[in-house]
Write a protein that binds this DNA or RNA. Structure first.
Lengths: 145, 145
DNA sequence: TCATTGTTATATTTGATATGTAACAATGAT
DNA sequence: ATCATTGTTACATATCAAATATAACAATGA
């Protein structure tokens, strides 16, 4: 799994690390049980301080996506979403979708974009995994509503 | 159009103001041509400094959602999205959708949630406006893909 | 002419981000 | 039991963003 950072981004470094772990988890490049690099090693690879990586790992732990162990390090766990998650998520989704909507993008296009992104994800268990190519017209196994 | 602020949120105040204008624009509570309150007045209503509101308005202007005039004040305009918008939007959508996906929410549910939110929006022009109630099973006029 | 509106400048306070240094604590491996 | 590896915590510091505060400026419709 390839990781990279954009130091000049308006997104904080620890958030970028966290986001890429989430993305790697969704695309199947990272699976429950997989280990994450030690904090100091990943920090050295990125050229950032180990505190920055530590903060990203701590955030992932709070979200129930990884488990931390003194000696073993960090492993992916992917706990299910707490009840409050959906409401908070919906509010963020509302703003994001509204942005595209008010900029004149047709709702069908917006929804199609979401469906395509969701189809590029792969379920954690081995249940009919994607072939990797983001099919723009998925016939089976994809999200069609 | 009712506005409110949560001072203890991790979202900056100027961003909250901007987000609510975008949301009001999507839900039809705000339409192109509508005026926005003067900076100082809105700041007084919120109990914040006028610089905070000014920043929100300036952000909305940069996004092409409002136009500012010395004497007239702020009016909604809703310019179409620039070419670079869609790519930047997709990257943000990818992270948001990945978050829900890795938390175990079925992709069908995620897409249904997006469709429901999109159906609660109303097109700017008077073309079959929504009745206001977010119909969970829209028959016509809604997004069905 | 003038009151209203946005605009700009400067300063200050507060909190978040990121780095730096140092030490501590658990624990699997030897 | 020892020990190196790993996460964890505690300080400190520098930089930047957010928000407030004060003051003045500039366009412009009434």
């Amino acid at each position: 799994m390839l990781l990279y950072l954009r130091p000049d981004s308006d997104i904080p470094l620890y958030q970028q690390i966290r986001d890429q772990v989430v993305n790697g988890l969704a695309t199947g490049q990272l699976a429950p049980g997989d280990p994450l690099p030690p904090i100091r090693q990943l920090a050295a690879d990125f050229g950032v301080h180990f505190h920055t990586v530590n903060r990203a790992y701590d955030l992932l732990r709070q979200e129930g996506l990884i488990r931390l162990h003194r000696r073993t390090g960090a492993v992916v766990v992917c706990e299910p979403a707490p009840p409050a998650f959906r409401d908070a998520w919906r509010e963020r989704a509302r703003v994001l979708l509204a942005e595209a909507f008010v900029k004149g993008i047709p709702p069908e296009d917006i929804l199609a974009e979401c469906a395509e992104l969701l189809n590029s994800f792969v379920p954690p268990a081995g249940s009919a995994p994607s072939t990797g190519h983001s099919d723009s017209s998925p016939s089976t196994g994809g999200v069609s509503k």
